[in-house]
Write a protein that binds this DNA or RNA. Sequence first.
DNA 1: TTTCTAACA
DNA 2: TGTTAGAA
Length: 133
Amino acid sequence: MSSKIRRSMPLFPISTVMKLTDLSARQIRYYEEHQLIHPERTAGNRRLFSLYDIDRLLEIKDLLDEGINMAGVKKILVREDESVHNQLKADLQKEKKVSSDEEVRKLLRKEFINAGRFYRNDLPPGDRFRYFH
DNA sequence: TTTCTAACA
DNA sequence: TGTTAGAA
């Protein structure tokens, strides 16, 4: 579980992400506008990307290269997010720790503060742990 | 210097 | 998607 936390740690400025993904700053910001990634922000409003964000950008790039449009990419990534959520829920239920989606979110809030795919800093504080769709 | 937002001869 | 202006 600690690996997930490390992968979600906000570390890189956009210049580094541009080099790692070979995407333009415009493209990276555009994908954020479309809710495909949710990079953290510094006190000075600069974006800080995690390894999860980098992975997602690479996935987005691959899907786009395959000819899939934004709407399609969004659907695919949302499905993946839901899959991750359901897998986590299944694991937790197996351990008899929780059962409802609400309980899954509650536990996530406790264990993955700022965890990449589950935390949305673009929503009001009380709604930040809702899942995508 | 780098990054941000907003906007478009 | 690129590019640029003006601000931070």
